[in-house]
Simulated assay, not measured.
Amino acid sequence: MSIIVTGGDGYLGWPTALRIADRTDERVVLVDNFARREWVEEVGATSATPISWPEERLAAAAEVHGLRNLSFVEADLTDRAAVDQLLQVHEPSAVVHTAAQPSAPYSNLNGERANYTQHNNMQATRNLAFGLAENDMADTHLIETTTTGVYGAPEFPIPEGGATMENQGERDDVPFPAMAGSWYHQTKCHDAANLRLAHKQFDIPISDVRTAIVYGTETEETRPDDRLKTRFDFDYYFGVVAHRFAAQAVAGYPLTVYGKGEQRKPFISLEDAVEGLARLAVGDPDDRPSDHVVYNQVTRPIAIVEMAETIQEVGEELGLDVDVTHVENPRDEDETHQMEIENERYMDLVGGQSQTFAEGVRDILETLTRYEETITSHEDRFLPDVLKEDAEE
């Protein structure tokens, strides 16, 4: 038996695999085709942290942590035959599916990228679901990271998965309506629907982990050795807003808040995201869900302006001169939207938040200052247009 982690070369997949390997005697099989490295290079960006290749990573995991139950398979999950072979050889008790093209801006670049994103993401998930069902592994726990982006930005509190609909005096629980804002997010709406159908048709135990915006550079397992570092993207296409703000701070540019910046977005630290996935994969077998369960993998919503001011405060503690400036908002959005999202089920799973946003920011800035030259040499990849114009003057 084994536990498979797809996207095992990625930002979330690699540290998740390390934690799972530390908590089980089962073989932990990382699966990836290195596409994320290609996508980032394609848009002229790079990881701020040097990322080792699997052979060096696994050697470091054995040397530093004594983890000898990790292995790596290069495979493309859109290839059904490859998925069947993977499942038949390794007979997983759980599959943690973190593999996807995760960038909304990349998916919105043009029709080619939109089509690629939709095919890549949904085909991989369908192949895993049908692979488990048709290889007599319907009792394998399928854990997928979808996204809180499937909810959109409603004015009412977002439930943890479902909603109650009333029509002509009758009430029923229904899936929350999909309100994607990009071709990438739409793939996760389809994945969520397909996961429900896979459970209904095949009786596969499924955890749909709707992941918020993940920030941070380190987990307990990656911290001791640079060979164990996970990737850190800070560009417009693959870097989340907190990471781009941190890059601006390190490069000596002001943090540009669009408009009021009071709108709240759902966030979770890398540490807390890894913990939730690990607990789902290697928790007490008696506690493993036999149903289809939705988790809102978020610790709390954070306002954009609060995020910038926290980076400013922590940066100044570390000796950086950080300014926050408000600029005209080029986007059509509610700058005061106060997102509320229920997360009781997820917080019960992880036992509460283990890392605050300020603690995660400190990790980020301490890491990025080590790689300042990489940041500044790629500043055209993360600076907003207003700062690019100022830099050119």
Score class of each variant (00 low, 15 high):
6 T>A: 00
6 T>Y: 04
10 G>P: 12
13 G>Q: 12
14 W>T: 05
15 P>D: 10
17 A>I: 12
21 A>R: 09
27 R>E: 15
27 R>W: 09
35 A>N: 12
35 A>M: 15
36 R>P: 08
36 R>M: 15
36 R>S: 09
42 E>N: 10
44 G>N: 09
45 A>I: 04
46 T>V: 13
47 S>P: 03
54 P>S: 03
55 E>Y: 11
56 E>H: 08
57 R>C: 05
65 H>T: 01
65 H>P: 06
76 D>S: 06
83 V>W: 02
83 V>Q: 11
90 H>E: 12
91 E>T: 15
96 V>D: 07
96 V>C: 01
98 T>M: 11
102 P>W: 04
106 Y>A: 00
106 Y>T: 09
113 R>T: 13
117 T>R: 02
120 N>T: 13
124 A>Y: 02
133 A>H: 02
135 N>Y: 03
135 N>V: 05
143 I>W: 05
143 I>E: 03
145 T>Q: 09
147 T>S: 10
149 G>K: 03
154 P>T: 06
154 P>W: 01
154 P>C: 07
159 P>H: 04
162 G>K: 05
170 E>I: 09
172 D>M: 15
172 D>K: 13
178 A>N: 13
181 G>H: 14
181 G>E: 13
182 S>G: 00
185 H>A: 13
185 H>Y: 13
186 Q>M: 14
187 T>M: 05
190 H>G: 11
190 H>D: 14
193 A>F: 15
194 N>D: 08
195 L>S: 00
200 K>F: 14
203 D>F: 15
203 D>Q: 15
207 S>E: 00
215 Y>F: 07
216 G>F: 03
220 E>T: 07
229 K>R: 15
229 K>W: 13
235 D>P: 01
235 D>N: 10
237 Y>V: 12
238 F>Y: 07
241 V>N: 04
245 F>A: 01
246 A>N: 00
250 V>Q: 01
251 A>K: 03
251 A>V: 09
255 L>N: 01
257 V>K: 02
260 K>R: 14
267 F>A: 08
267 F>V: 13
269 S>C: 04
272 D>G: 09
281 A>V: 09
281 A>G: 12
283 G>A: 08
283 G>N: 03
285 P>H: 07
303 A>F: 03
305 V>Q: 13
307 M>I: 04
309 E>N: 03
311 I>H: 04
314 V>R: 01
314 V>Y: 00
318 L>I: 07
320 L>D: 01
327 V>Q: 10
327 V>G: 00
333 E>Q: 15
334 D>A: 10
334 D>P: 11
335 E>W: 06
339 M>P: 04
340 E>Q: 06
342 E>F: 14
342 E>Q: 14
342 E>G: 15
343 N>V: 05
345 R>G: 07
345 R>Q: 07
346 Y>T: 03
349 L>A: 02
350 V>E: 00
357 F>E: 04
360 G>E: 08
370 R>P: 01
371 Y>L: 11
379 E>K: 09
385 D>E: 14
